[in-house]
């Protein structure tokens, strides 16, 4: 649980904050992830999961934004 090894946003346990390292996406998806504020250096916290486990809602720069697992796996983070 206290590992600081890099992982993806979707793997981050609820309540465990992480810092964005890089995005594994190109083109429009990359642009949209950036627009949501997921730029390297941003601190993100997974707050809740949908009852089905997917999507997951994250606190990103003051707003609560839900992403599907596919997108969550595109964001590499280092747990804090």
């Amino acid at each position: 649980m206290y590992t600081t090894e890099e992982t993806t946003l979707a793997n981050l346990p609820l309540g465990r904050r992480g810092i964005v390292k890089s995005l594994d996406a190109e083109g429009i998806i990359r642009r949209r992830l950036l627009d949501l504020g997921l730029i390297p250096g941003t601190v993100v916290e997974p707050i809740r999961k949908s009852p089905a486990g997917d999507p997951i809602a994250f606190k990103i720069r003051g707003a609560v934004i839900a992403l599907r697992l596919e997108e969550g796996h595109r964001v590499c983070v280092r747990p804090l």
Binding site: L33, V64, I65, A66, L67, R68, E71
Partner: peptide, 10 residues
């Protein structure tokens, strides 16, 4: 393909 899904919970 499914497009990017992002949904704000205001």
């Amino acid at each position: 393909e499914p497009s990017l899904f992002s949904l704000e919970l205001p």
